[in-house]
Each structure stands twice: as structure tokens, then as C-alpha cells.
Design a protein around this nucleic acid. Sequence first.
DNA 1: GATACAACCTCTAGCCGCTGGAGATTCAAG
DNA 2: CTTGAATCTCCAGCGGCTAGAGGTTGTATC
Lengths: 139, 139
Amino acid sequence: MSNMAIGKLAVIAATKVQTIRYYEEIGLIRPFSRTEGGHRIYGPDDMQRLKFIRHARELGFGIGEIRELLQLSDNPETSCSTADAIARSQLEKVEIRLEKLRVLRKELKRMVGECGHGRVSHCRVIEVLSDHRHCSSEH
Amino acid sequence: MSNMAIGKLAVIAATKVQTIRYYEEIGLIRPFSRTEGGHRIYGPDDMQRLKFIRHARELGFGIGEIRELLQLSDNPETSCSTADAIARSQLEKVEIRLEKLRVLRKELKRMVGECGHGRVSHCRVIEVLSDHRHCSSEH
DNA sequence: GATACAACCTCTAGCCGCTGGAGATTCAAG
DNA sequence: CTTGAATCTCCAGCGGCTAGAGGTTGTATC
């Protein structure tokens, strides 16, 4: 059988054991069975589900969103427009984060570039951080 | 005088009152004085310090890094190479985050683009999330 | 001076998404 | 049967705040 204990599942899904138990606690995943002694037993379906969760987390989805997506995939007859909307909103968030980071990078590059490697009293890094007005763009 | 209570400082530095008290708790900033009744009194120096902290936070610096930067600006005679190093390492982190987000965006765009607005059973969003192999690039 | 009420005080708990540890139990290999 | 790794539950903590309870202080108005 391809059933396994939590440790093996953790390795396969590149997750920590504690994280899997945490996901169970918040109701995302639960072992299809337990041994007499109480050890969790997972099957291939559980593995798929965990991979789904991990992959979605990597893509920046929050737990709430993942919960929704899981419900959708548990009920394949529902319209996929919800899943699409979630992905779209995620994409928007990513675009915003990207834009912010670009501004940040610009500012940091300027800070690094202008540091004359002298004393702090003449360091632009500190100076720029002390006052928004030194910034070359809004953020 | 330009002395003020915590509420006014909060407005000026676009911070929440609780956040300022939190910063005090972790040793980043403390009022130069208190009233007889115990209310915090801040001066212009405190204001500058808080602005420094907030600005650095906006630029993505962690509390530990800010602590270091504050020490540097408190001792202007030290070499600025430390400040420079912190900014540089911050810049590196930002570059990495940027790259990851770009990959994410690509994946999300593909997911959204391929969703046929039909049933979940044929939804690429769910499908892509179910399996890493659907991804067009590593992440 | 009394009163009202906003702003402040401290303290505690909660958010997200895990992560780590203590101490007890179970499982699998030899 | 013994050993030792893996698992169990429970509790606490991370960063960086944020919110609320319940009490005190400060200030404007009458």
C-alpha cells in the first residue's frame, strides 16, 4: 500500500511535520485513518491535498483562499469562476507588491551608491532613512 | 514648545499609538519625559527618531536592522560601512523577492488566462495548483 | 470649582503561519 | 524483548503589530 506516516508525508510534500499537524488543526487536511496507537495514516489523496496546499502557499495564497479553493476542488460541479476570481485577486496583489518592491529597490540602490564609506555623520544611508524628503519617489 | 503627547506624535509620524508603545517596549524609542500623571511627553528628537524607524520599516528593514542603524546614527563617529552593509543586504533581499514575485505573476497570469469559465473539473487554476509539473518555470 | 469627556495609562490577548520543545507513548528493526 | 527513532499531545514563542478592558489624567466648558 502507499499509505504512510506523517514523517514520510512531510518529506514527500517538503513540509514540516508540525506544519501538517497545524493544517489539521485549522481544518485543511486530516489523515484518512489512525493506527490503534493513534499515529496518523495518510493515503495518496491526502498527499495530493497537501501538495495542493503547499503549492498554493508558495504562490502566495492565504489560508482562507486555500480553504475556498479546496472546497471548490472538493465539489467539481461548481462553476470555476470563483477559483478564477481568487487567482485574479491574487495576481493583483502580486502586481502591487512588485511595484512597491521596485520603488524600494530604487531607493536602496541610491542609498548604497551614495555612501562614501566615510563616517556615519556623512552617510547617505542614515540620512535618507531620516527623512522622507530625500526619497526620489513616493512610497 | 514643540513637546507633545503620544497621540499627536502618532498623527505626525503616521503611526498608531499602540505601535509607538510597542516600539518603547522593545527598546527602540522612549519619551524624554513623562507628566506627573504618567503621560508620555515627546520632543522633536523623539519625533525624528520615530520617523527614522517608520521610514526604515517602509523600506523593508526588520526591527533588528533598525536597531543597528539607530545605534549607528546615535554614534556618528563610527564608520558607515556597517550602515552600507545593512542597506546592501537589504537590497539583495529585495532583488530575490522581486524575482520570486515575477515568477509568481507569470504563473498566476497563465492560470487566469487558461481558465475557461466552465466547471471546476476543467479549471486550470485548480489543476495548476494540484501539481507542480504544470508550472512553466521553477519556483 | 465641578463636570464632562477625550486622551491617556497598563495589562492581556489575539492576529498569521508556522516552528520548536517537553515529556509521554508507539512502532519497527534486530 | 530491547532499543531507539518516530510519533503523540500540549504549550509557548516568533515578528510586528493591533484591539480591547478597565482605570486614570488632562483640559475645555459651565
